[in-house]
Design a protein around this nucleic acid. Sequence first.
RNA 1: CGGGGCGUGGCGCAGUUUGGUUAGCGCGUUUGACUGGGGGUCAAAAGGUCGCCGGUUCAAAUCCGGCCGCCCCGACCA
Length: 571
Amino acid sequence: MRASQYYAPTLRQAPAEAEIPSHKLLVRGGFIRPLTSGVFTYLPLGLRVLRRVEQVVREEMNRAGAIEVFMAVLEPKELWERTGRWDSFQPQPLRTEDRTGRWFCLGPTHEEVITDLVARDVSSYKQLPLTLYQIQTKFRDEIRPRGGLIRVKEFTMKDAYSFDIDEAGLERSYQAMYAAYVRIFERLGLATLVVQAEAGSMGGSDTREFMCLNENGEDTVFMCDSCDYAANAECATSRVCEPDTLEDPGGAYEQIDTPGATTIQAISEMLGMPAQKMIKTLLYRVDDRFVAALVRGDRDLNEIKLQRATGAEELRMATAEEILGLTGAPVGFSGPVGLPDEVEIIADPEIEFLRNFVVGANEADAHLTGVNVGRDFEVSRYADLRQAAAGDPCPQCEAGKLQTRRGIEMGHIFKLGTKYSEALGALYTSEDGEQRPMVMGCYGIGVSRCVAAIVEEHHDEKGIAWPLTVAPFGVVILLLDPDNEELVAIADDLASQLEAAGYEVMIDDRDERPGVKFKDAELIGYPLSIVIGRKTAENGEVEVRRRRDTAEEVAPVAQAVARLQELAEDA
RNA sequence: CGGGGCGUGGCGCAGUUUGGUUAGCGCGUUUGACUGGGGGUCAAAAGGUCGCCGGUUCAAAUCCGGCCGCCCCGACCA
């Protein structure tokens, strides 16, 4: 390809709205252009990178035995109603209506479609196991797109779905995908950390996220500093340590005046007592009932965990009016003592080891001190409700402490079980003649997000440094003097040699000054380059460079391709 | 959805507080000349509904009201 004939507009300055490196560099380098919030156009260079990432994913999926299909973006409402997700999927899918008033959503995921497909065509255990996948555009009405390609409303995703006869089969399919993911991210040049995660709208039990640890990621990961425990903040937990000695419960609790102290911090300051000696009582509306969630004063409640613990479909904090109705007190003074019976009290396990603590009195401007579980109120059950915090003891090993890092979620694998196969009638006849639901798994990779992650991981102050596997062109030939026919001939000759050797080559033959070409090549991030200019050509030489470490050397024209290939080994 | 910021030629910005000729600057673009190994120099030129609608005023990029869009921080996801 000749740059003079190509469409790769670069910008000297990044648009003001871009903040993180991948966003700035992808726009500056002429890979993508914003269309509207969370929606981008791929320019030729960006499309090339996207296709290369897709190809790596495709090869590894095929190698793992998955079979490619291509499903429609439009998914009919009726199918989603059968799994109950038309109204419950979060975020709400983008929807559209045809001229007859029939509703569709722009597919945010394809469990319904694939399960329906397999339900129709597969009926025997002899046809299983089966793993199908596609690489396709997904739509999600993201509440807040951010970070260029990190989170967008329209993106390219690889989604795979496995169908097995039983849990043991699912385990094999799941492990095959796990292994494929490890290979994929390795080939993409992305160091990954596999973490425990929540299933969200997908449902299912065992789920793992493949994270690329990066400060511009949007997820928080907790990892142990001494063992391999790693979990997304949404489900990370910590070990509850029973203290060596427990305080003796004192006499009966006392009510004290705490005017205006509606926060733990305020009470803590007023009483000169640490927040660890207090209990936060959080009242939640859980479907059609109320629950009081108790966590230690210095802790935050994790709503996802509360939702899990209660099995709630919908969950929200009680309103001020509801709190007044339940406790007789305004917000800020709720406590577990004397709550109406219909309010279930669920407590975080840390509460069990607290003695003589402080709680709200269910009365305006008052708290209770010296309160004890069992004596003053009953906890209906204990469940992990607290948000883990950096420094907490590791739940998995004795010595470790948890630390937090930011991460980009590139892939997510789920064991779905029979949720979809039952809802959509994906049954098979077993060897003994019984009808059984297929046991499913699903496996996603954010392909376009991976492009952003690769840039986050592979760039410097000059621009991008693509790994050779995903580079839009593996080699750029900087033809510093495109009017010199001898040099043009050298460039053409080298280009055809390189192409014969399997490289894709961009010849920068634009009528630009050398500096412009050097800057653009570094911004765009070609892994390898050959510089052809008068200076070295006089000696029958060209310059050979590697972007990643700016290695550079001169080589005779005849040996340039061989030298480049040597550099490429490690590009 | 809550909080914050922004909207002025393709990109980056000044001007808005305190209304007042023809709306500036850098980069980019076009033409010409010189140049030619790290975003070069000189000269000339093109390119603007100052986000949109309405209001105040002799006069609005500037003041007021409404709306739209974009970005960032929080609660959700590949």
